[in-house]
Amino acid sequence: MVEDAGVVAPDRTIRLHADAPVHVCGDAARLQQVLNNLVGNAIQHTPAGTPIDVSLESSGGEAVVRVADQGPGIAQQDLSRVFDRFWRAEAGRSRARGGSGLGLAIVQAVVHAHHGTVRITSHTGSGTAVTVTLPALPPPR
């Protein structure tokens, strides 16, 4: 997925940080959709050239995936609404730039269907990070 994003956005540095594979049980296509939505949002809503970091780790029996950018961030008053269907922070996310306001609502629904959590942190001027936590399977023997 990171390699695919690099093809779509060759002007970006998209880095993957993963020490080892982490296995989860779930719908592979839907989980890929989650990652595509998160990386796609980072590409779409940050200025050209803004680096994006994708990390994967195992922590306490959970798979933790984080997509972080160093873009303009999301205003604090908007953070409570980012998972609402059809909602977009108008200052930085116009229809001219695409999107229906469903991406993060879909991410949340898929993650919850997989018994996971999703949270977002952002500060205006210093970027946004979305963290998805899913139950991990034990490492293969």
Rank of each mutant, 00 (worst) to 15 (best):
Leu56Lys: 10
Ala68Met: 08
Asn41Glu: 01
Ser58Asn: 14
Leu38Tyr: 04
Val67Ser: 11
Val34Thr: 02
Leu35Lys: 00
Val22Tyr: 12
Gln76Arg: 13
Gln76Val: 12
Asp69Tyr: 09
Asp84Cys: 06
Ala63Gly: 12
Val22Ala: 14
Ile52Lys: 01
Leu79Trp: 10
Ser55Trp: 05
Leu31Trp: 02
Ala18Lys: 07
Val22Asp: 10
Ala63Leu: 15
Leu16Phe: 03
Glu57Trp: 11
Val67Lys: 10
Ala28Asp: 13
Ala20Trp: 05
Ser80Gln: 14
Val64His: 10
Val34Tyr: 00
Val65Glu: 08
Ile52Met: 05
Ala75Glu: 11
Asp53Trp: 04
Ser58Pro: 04
Ala63Lys: 09
Arg85Ile: 04
Arg15Gly: 08
Gln77Ala: 09
Gly73Phe: 02
Asn37His: 11
Cys25Met: 08
Thr46Asn: 11
Val65Phe: 09
Gly26His: 00
His17Val: 14
Asn36Tyr: 05
Gln70Asp: 12
Val34Ser: 02
Ala29Leu: 10
Gly61Ile: 13
Gly49Asn: 02
Gln44Asp: 08
Ala68Phe: 05
Asp69Gly: 13
Ala20Arg: 15
Gly40Val: 05
Leu16Ser: 04
Gln32Lys: 07
Pro51Cys: 02
Asn41Met: 00
Ala18Gln: 15
Gly26Tyr: 01
Glu57Cys: 13
Leu79Cys: 08
Glu62Val: 10
Asp84Tyr: 10
Cys25Leu: 12
Thr46Ser: 15
Gln76Leu: 11
Pro51Ser: 01
Asp19Val: 11
Val22Pro: 12
Asp19Tyr: 04
Leu31His: 04
Val82His: 10
Ala29Glu: 15
Ala20Thr: 11
Gln44Ala: 13
Asp27Val: 07
Gln33Val: 09
Gly60Val: 14
Leu16Glu: 03
Leu38Glu: 02
Pro47Val: 00
Asn36Leu: 06
Val64Gln: 13
Val82Asn: 08
Ala28Tyr: 01
Leu35Ile: 03
Leu38Pro: 03
Gln33Arg: 14
Gly60His: 15
Ile74Met: 10
Leu56Glu: 06
Thr13His: 11
Ala68Ser: 15
Arg66His: 04
Gly61Gln: 11
Pro21Arg: 06
Val34Glu: 00
Ser80Pro: 03
Phe83Gly: 10
Ile52Cys: 09
Asp27Met: 04
Ile52Thr: 06
Gln44Gly: 02
Arg30Asp: 11
Val22Ser: 12
Val22Thr: 11
Gln32Tyr: 02
Gln76Cys: 03
Leu16Arg: 04
Ala28Arg: 13
Gly49Ala: 05
Val24Asp: 06
His23Gln: 14
His45Ala: 01
Glu62Lys: 15
Leu35Cys: 04
